[in-house]
C-alpha cells in the first residue's frame, strides 16, 4: 500500500500540470493581495472609509491569517478539482489504468492510494499557500506600517493549526467529487466539468435559496459549500446570506455534513470502480 501511495505521489510530482497549478495558485495570491493593497492606497470614491480600514486590517497580521486560509480554501478547491479529475481521468485516456490493475489486482487499494496521495498533495499545496500568503502579507504589512509579531501566542498557534485542519478537511468533499465524476465519466473532462460545474451551480443555488427565506433557506444547510464555509469562513461571508440572517449551521453540523458527503462520495466511487469493467 505504501508503495502504491509513493507511486501516486511520484506521478503527481512529475506531472507538468501539478506545477502549472502551483504557479496559478501563487499568481492568484499575488494578484489578490496586491490588488487589495492597491485599493487601500487609492480607494474608489464611493468606498466608505470604514471598508477601506477593514481592508487595511485584512492585509496586516493577525487579521490577515483568516484571509490567507479562506483564499487558500477557495482557490485550492478549484485547483484540486482540476488536479484530481485530470489525474484520475487521464489514467483512462492513456490506458494506464489497465496497466496498473494488471499488476495490482486490488482495486480498493488503488483508489485508496490515489486518495491518500491527493490528500497529501492538498496538504502540501496548503502549506505552500500559507507560505506565499504570509510572505505577501509581510510585504503589505510593511508597506502599510510595520510588522508586529506579538500576535504569535500559543493560542494563535493553536488556532492556526485548527484552521489548517478545517481547511484541509473542507477540501475533502471536493476532491472526492472530482474523483467520483472522473470515474463515472472515465475521463478528465467529466471530472473537471462535473466538479467545477457542481461547485459553481451550488454557489448560485445557495444565494437564491438563502434569499428565498422560509424552509427554502434551510436547504443550503444540507449542501457542501455552505458547510465548508462554516469551517473556514470566507471573507465574502461577512456580507453573505448566512452572515446577514445569522442562520449559519453549527460547526459540528458543518463538520458532520462535510464528513457524510465525503464518505458517501468515496463509497459510491469504490463501489462503481469495483463493479465496472475496464475496457478502455
Amino acid at each position: 500500500m505504501l508503495n502504491m501511495i509513493k507511486v501516486e505521489l511520484t506521478k503527481l510530482r512529475k506531472r507538468k500540470m501539478t506545477w502549472i497549478l502551483l504557479v496559478v495558485l501563487a499568481a492568484f495570491f499575488c494578484i489578490m493581495v496586491f490588488a487589495a493593497y492597491g485599493i487601500t492606497e487609492s480607494p474608489p470614491e464611493h468606498m466608505p472609509e470604514e471598508s477601506v480600514g477593514e481592508l487595511r486590517s485584512l492585509l496586516q497580521f493577525p487579521d490577515a491569517t483568516g484571509l490567507i486560509f479562506s483564499t487558500a480554501r477557495q482557490i485550492g478547491t478549484l485547483l484540486m478539482i482540476i488536479l484530481v479529475a485530470s489525474a484520475v481521468g487521464n489514467e483512462y485516456g492513456w490506458g494506464t489504468i489497465r496497466q496498473v490493475l494488471i499488476r495490482r489486482g486490488n482495486r480498493y487499494k488503488y483508489i485508496i492510494a490515489k486518495l491518500v496521495a491527493f490528500i497529501i498533495a492538498a496538504a502540501i499545496g496548503l502549506v505552500i499557500s500559507l507560505i506565499i500568503g504570509f510572505v505577501l502579507v509581510s510585504i503589505t504589512s510593511n508597506l502599510l506600517g510595520s510588522i508586529n509579531w506579538d500576535f504569535i501566542t500559543s493560542s494563535y498557534v493553536g488556532e492556526f493549526f485548527r484552521m489548517f485542519g478545517w481547511t484541509l478537511f473542507s477540501l475533502l468533499p471536493y476532491i472526492l467529487l472530482a474523483f467520483f465524476f472522473a470515474f463515472l465519466g472515465r475521463s478528465a473532462l467529466a471530472g473537471i466539468g462535473g466538479g467545477l460545474g457542481l461547485y459553481f451551480i451550488e454557489s448560485i443555488v445557495v444565494v437564491i435559496l438563502s434569499n428565498a427565506g422560509g424552509w427554502l433557506a434551510k436547504i443550503p444547510h444540507y449542501l457542501i459549500g455552505p458547510n465548508a464555509d462554516v469551517l473556514v469562513p470566507s471573507i465574502e461571508m461577512q456580507g453573505g446570506p448566512f452572515a446577514s440572517s445569522g442562520d449559519a449551521p453549527s460547526t459540528l453540523w458543518a463538520a458532520m455534513a462535510v464528513l457524510i458527503y465525503s464518505v458517501v462520495l468515496l463509497g459510491i466511487s469504490l463501489w462503481m470502480f469495483k463493479k465496472r469493467d475496464i475496457t478502455a
Binding site: 508503495n3 502504491m4 509513493k6 507511486v7 511520484t10 506521478k11 512529475k14 506531472r15 507538468k16 492513456w94 490506458g95 494506464t96 489504468i97 489497465r98 496497466q99 496498473v100 499488476r103 495490482r104
Partner: peptide, 22 residues
C-alpha cells in the same frame, strides 16, 4: 495491451520505475 498504456510525461526509465514499484 493493444495500445501501450504508459505515462506520456514520464521517460521510458521512469515509467518502468513506476511499474517496478508496484
Amino acid at each position: 495491451m493493444e495500445t501501450p498504456g504508459l505515462y506520456p510525461y514520464l521517460s521510458g526509465r521512469d515509467n518502468l520505475k513506476v511499474f517496478a514499484r508496484l
